[in-house]
Design a protein around this nucleic acid. Structure first.
Length: 788
DNA sequence: TCATACCGGGG
DNA sequence: GTGTACGGTATGA
């Protein structure tokens, strides 16, 4: 597979040592502008460079019509030059020209003649015939330059701004305030002097002036690309104000196609775009949050406030105002909104510093702009550009995308060995199983003649280990530690996506190889099976195994040392590079269904996993019952489980529970008109509840809380700042909610008992005591479903 | 009940 | 010239 041995460090980092690049803007005419901050002084320099725009083609036929204007590289200095690359790849002609547009039109001219149809864009030739990168990426691939060499994140000049508007709709709502945080940490609040168009236009102009004067390398905000820039762009157009956010280029924002962008201005095309400002990098911290949460999966949401709180960067005196109250608050207490808006930009700056290191690290490696890498997917967004550069550097022809041969992709293994209650539970798992298997068995794409993907994975894993070690050397919770962890997380995502890169079907990735991907999962299932068998042989009880991890229970006499010893014993039997780790230990586990379980920690904490145990639609009383009853169940307090059940029924019957506790949060998906049109056929509780409460207008997307009333109608629980007002009559349907408790919530504990015992524990209060066994004698059960 | 489509956010 | 990472919720057959 790996025929040539290159220097992988070039593949990972490029080769040009130019330090401090903070932005690149290139055009098809072969001119590139580079902004650099000198690492030693922080001084900004602006350089004009030339490069030869280039593409890769699968044939030269379409350029023959150029005659003497086309020559082989190294010959005469014709305007269009080519070089044939080595190896079997389909994209084997590297063609460059003085001017990229001239090159493009020459290719299109030839291809149109050959095909007998008029082609207007290179992409009409198909990705099997042509590879054309953006001018910036052509420049970076050709030069081996990358962003931020020898530059620390804190040396970047970052400016944050945040719009405060009267609403979310740029068509009708307007900006009335902008908060700014400058690279030196100063903040400022700009306000519209009046509520008319000229006042708003003046506000936009002042914002532009401030940005130009501060001249930042990077502009940041949370949901910058999803809200602030589109809103600003729209308002500026409507008001006839020229926007200029970049360092060069005329007025108006430029656009680029982006999957996670907003709908382009033209409603006919369903293209999504993001805005571009030449010379500056437009960074949306939400992208960093998404990427972070992707690997940690611990964030309660992706909004700025909730993330800042969770990561411990929200100031203790941080001002909070509900989104829909901001303008109303401004009208009565403008100072409060000023504080709020300032806190927003401060938080964005801190958030970016904490999580931005990931994209920053990727931009030091991959030949793309920083802002592209901050929202890029790991496979086509990061790995593919690295591979393209490696192949160009090696002078190797690049394989074109190819459809699979129809082989289906087989996935991971999932076993539920036992359900019910288990004690002394241990979780062991393999870190990064799939990339480890790729590395251990050298499973790479068949068409990767350079062996570049595996070399990159090796390099990225090493780099990640460095970041992890650096993180461990910093104090827990410190920004430095978070930064290293963010780098580590980003690299983990890229490393793990190497497998996804193989497995992607339908010609999505250049080196997709379903056979290699199947070999990875086959090895993975083999390793999981081996882990399970060997663990069982050591005397543990297997509970659940999924892809790369196993839950098992150990005998009562074992200590934590015994648990760790067993994991180490089994780890020693696994292939090299496949590292089985001790991932956690728990006092007890309720195993309900695959991927649905509850874990009781030795510290008393209760962890619920899976849709059976947590759902946003759950009624609060049901969720509360689940938590309390499972906590008792897992310590063997069966009488306590019944008490909790009876207490909940008693509370329902006595209407001691607030209506809010039995209500369910639902999302309104039909407009009043739409619902009224179908109301005759089918009545829905949500809408009936709103109508019955006198609400005749609502908008799609609203979230409301509804409950079932005694008379079968629906009721709405209205949120209110005043708890006294929020409490409606407790006229909920008690019988319905008692039944829901038994049939939906108590049911989640069914696996923990024999059917008779379950019936006894959850018998109706009035029926209990006839033939039921005494509660004190009831033991929880663990049922073996599958033997290893 | 099960499969699939869509969303995650911003004021 | 974009992306094929998840996990929950809403919906339609």
């Amino acid at each position: 597979m790996a025929s040539a041995r290159m220097i992988p460090s070039e593949w990972l980092w490029g080769w040009d040592p130019t330090p401090g690049i903070v932005s690149v803007h290139a055009e098809h005419n072969g001119r590139a502008q580079v902004w650099r901050r000198l690492p030693a002084t922080g001084e900004l320099i602006h350089e004009h460079e030339r490069f030869r725009p280039w593409v890769l083609l699968d044939r030269l036929d379409d350029l023959r019509h150029l005659g003497a204007q086309l020559t082989r590289e190294g010959g005469t200095n014709a305007p269009v030059r080519y070089r044939e690359l080595e190896g079997p790849g389909a994209l084997r002609y590297h063609v460059s020209a003085d001017d990229g547009r001239m090159l493009t039109s020459a290719i299109l001219h030839g291809a149109s003649q050959r095909k007998g149809t008029r082609l207007s864009q290179l992409r009409d030739l198909g990705q099997k015939s042509v590879l054309a990168l953006s001018p910036e990426e052509q420049y970076l691939v050709a030069t081996g330059r990358t962003y931020f060499r020898d530059l620390a994140f804190d040396q970047l000049h970052r400016l944050q701004f945040d719009l405060e508007t009267t609403g979310l709709n740029a068509q009708h709502d307007r900006m009335f305030m902008v908060s700014i945080r400058y690279p030196n940490g100063d903040t400022e609040v700009l306000e519209a002097h009046g509520d008319d168009g000229p006042a708003e236009a003046n506000l936009i102009r002042r914002l532009m002036e401030r940005i130009a004067a501060a001249d930042p390398d990077v502009i940041e905000n949370h949901n910058l690309h999803g809200f602030d820039l589109p809103f600003l762009d729209r308002r500026a157009r409507m008001l006839g104000v020229a926007l200029s956010l970049g360092r060069v280029g005329g007025p108006g924002l430029r656009q680029r196609a982006a999957r996670r962008g907003v709908a382009s201005g033209n409603p006919d095309e369903n293209r999504r775009v993001r805005f571009v400002a030449p010379g500056r990098e437009l960074i949306d911290t939400m992208d960093a949050v998404r990427r972070h949460d992707f690997s940690t999966r611990e964030l309660p949401g992706h909004g700025l406030k909730v993330v800042a709180k969770h990561l411990g960067i929200a100031a203790p005196d941080r001002e909070y105002i509900r989104g829909d109250q901001i303008y109303a608050t401004y009208c009565v207490d403008p100072e409060r909104v000023r504080r709020y808006a300032t806190d927003d930009v401060e938080e964005v700056a801190a958030l970016s510093r904490m999580l931005g290191g990931a994209a920053y690290a990727l931009a030091q490696m991959a030949p793309r702009r920083y802002e592209r890498l901050s929202d890029a997917g790991p496979a086509t967004g990061v790995i593919d550009p690295l591979l393209v550069r490696a192949y160009m550097r090696a002078g190797m022809a690049l394989p074109a995308h190819e459809e699979g041969d129809g082989t289906v992709h087989s996935g991971a293994a999932l076993y539920l060995f036992a359900s019910g209650v288990a004690h002394r539970v241990v979780k062991a798992d393999v870190a990064s199983l799939y990339p480890s298997l790729m590395r251990a068995y050298r499973i790479g794409p068949g068409r990767d003649r350079l062996g570049a993907l595996l070399a990159l994975v090796d390099g990225l894993v090493e780099r990640r280990l460095d970041a992890k070690a650096n993180a461990r050397a910093e104090p827990v919770g410190s920004p430095q530690r978070h930064s290293y962890e963010a780098v580590s997380a980003a690299l983990k995502i890229v490393v793990n996506s190497a497998y996804g890169y193989l497995a992607a079907g339908g010609g999505l990735t250049r080196f997709a190889d379903v056979h290699a991907a199947n070999e990875v999962t086959r090895r993975g299932r083999e390793v999981l099976g081996l882990m399970c068998r060997e663990l069982a042989a050591q005397g543990v009880t297997l509970l659940e195994a999924d892809t790369d991890g196993v839950y098992f229970a150990v005998p009562a006499s074992w200590t934590e040392l015994d648990e760790r010893r067993v994991v180490a014993n089994v780890a020693a039997m696994l292939p090299p590079l496949v590292q089985l780790e001790f991932d956690g230990r728990y006092a007890a586990m309720l195993s309900h269904e695959p991927k649905n379980y509850a874990l009781l920690g030795y510290d008393g904490s209760l962890l619920l996993r899976g849709v059976a145990f947590r759902s946003s639609r759950s009624e609060p009383y049901g969720e509360h019952f689940l938590r309390r009853s499972i906590a008792k169940l897992l310590v063997g307090n069966v009488a306590g489980v019944r008490e909790t059940y009876l207490a909940t029924i008693t509370a329902l019957r006595a209407r001691a529970l607030a209506t809010h506790d039995v209500s369910s949060r639902v999302r309104v998906t039909k407009s009043p008109e739409e619902y009224l049109a179908t109301r005759g056929k089918r009545r829905e509780l949500t809408y009936e509840a709103m109508l019955a409460s006198g609400r005749t207008t609502w908008s799609v997307g609203d979230r409301i809380r509804v409950y079932r009333k005694q008379n079968g109608e629906g009721g709405v629980v209205v949120p209110s700042e005043d708890p006294a007002l929020a409490e409606p009559a407790r006229d909920y349907d008690v019988r319905y909610y008692v039944r829901l408790l038994r049939e939906t919530y108590a049911e989640r504990l069914a696996r923990a008992f024999t059917p008779e015992d379950f019936a006894a524990v959850f018998a109706d209060p009035d029926q209990y005591s006839l033939f039921a066994p005494p509660l004190g004698q009831i033991r929880t059960t663990l049922t073996t479903l599958l033997s290893s």
